[in-house]
């Protein structure tokens, strides 16, 4: 009788928990979030808007390309004072090429090449699943709450709390924390839009930070298209030539 009870309990647990375990595979959810936000290799146009406490604004327009999980380039198209500046990210390595300087300089992820609340890691964001591992997952009504932990110390934020819409599997809000537990900033995704090619995702990303009270920054996405690139496009030698890809 005891054996039968154990067997029944085991079967019940297996059959009962298996779908739950499958449904709550955090790593898989995170990978789907990545793919729903953008194809693995793509080109994209974005506008970054920094809004200051006095309501004044600064706007930047970027042409961005990405290949695979760890290669990304962003070229400034506007304003004139920034035009031609190009940033490259390869894994955790980042460089900034300024035409006036004439050579790439290494930059770090916590710096910001545009000022405002977005830092370099926000502007040159790789796939979440490349930089973070899922440590916890909770269901909250129509959302999953993912607890993400940085895979290495060179990632800008030590941990993330990402609220994911269950239906579309896209993030609604992401809170970014330092290793000390301090909230660095919050990212808010909104305005879901069909970009074509099967890409349906938020077209607006806003951020604010308790460390920069009164400031906020907004990223508008205008065009995202899957596109393949040669590996050599993502090298320092190519940075002055990125405009030729448009």
């Amino acid at each position: 009788m005891k054996r039968i009870s154990i067997a029944l309990t085991t079967v019940a647990l297996l059959f009962g928990l298996a779908p739950l375990l499958y449904a709550l595979d955090g790593e898989e959810i995170l990978r789907r979030v990545d793919r729903n936000l953008n194809p693995e290799s793509y080109e994209m146009y974005r506008k970054l808007i920094n809004i200051e406490p006095d309501s004044s604004r600064k706007e930047f327009v970027l042409y961005t390309i990405k290949k695979g999980q760890d290669r990304m380039v962003a070229l400034f198209l506007s304003p004139a004072s920034e035009k031609g500046r190009t940033t490259l990210r390869l894994d955790d390595n980042m460089w900034l090429y300024m035409p006036s300087v004439g050579k790439p300089l290494r930059i770090t992820s916590l710096q910001s090449i545009v000022g405002g609340v977005f830092n370099n890691s926000d502007i040159l964001r790789l796939d979440y699943s490349k930089e973070y591992t899922v440590q916890s997952i909770e269901e909250e009504g129509d959302h999953y709450l993912l607890g993400l932990k940085a895979r290495s110390g060179t990632v800008a934020y030590d941990s993330l709390a990402m609220l994911v819409d269950k239906k579309n599997v896209i993030p609604i809000e992401t809170r970014c924390y330092a290793s000390s537990g301090i909230l660095i900033k919050t990212l808010h995704y909104s305005e879901i839009k069909d970009f074509g090619g099967g890409i349906v995702r938020p077209s607006v990303l806003e951020t604010d930070s308790p460390l920069q009270k009164g400031y906020r920054s907004v990223m508008l996405f205008a065009e995202i298209k899957a596109r393949k690139f040669n590996d050599e496009v993502f090298t320092l030698s190519f940075l002055p030539k990125v405009e030729e890809l448009r």
Partner: peptide, 14 residues
């Protein structure tokens, strides 16, 4: 830039 609201802080709550 115009100093219309310089020094005032917008609420930081998301």
């Amino acid at each position: 830039p115009p100093a219309r609201a310089r020094g005032t802080e917008l609420p930081a709550e998301s």
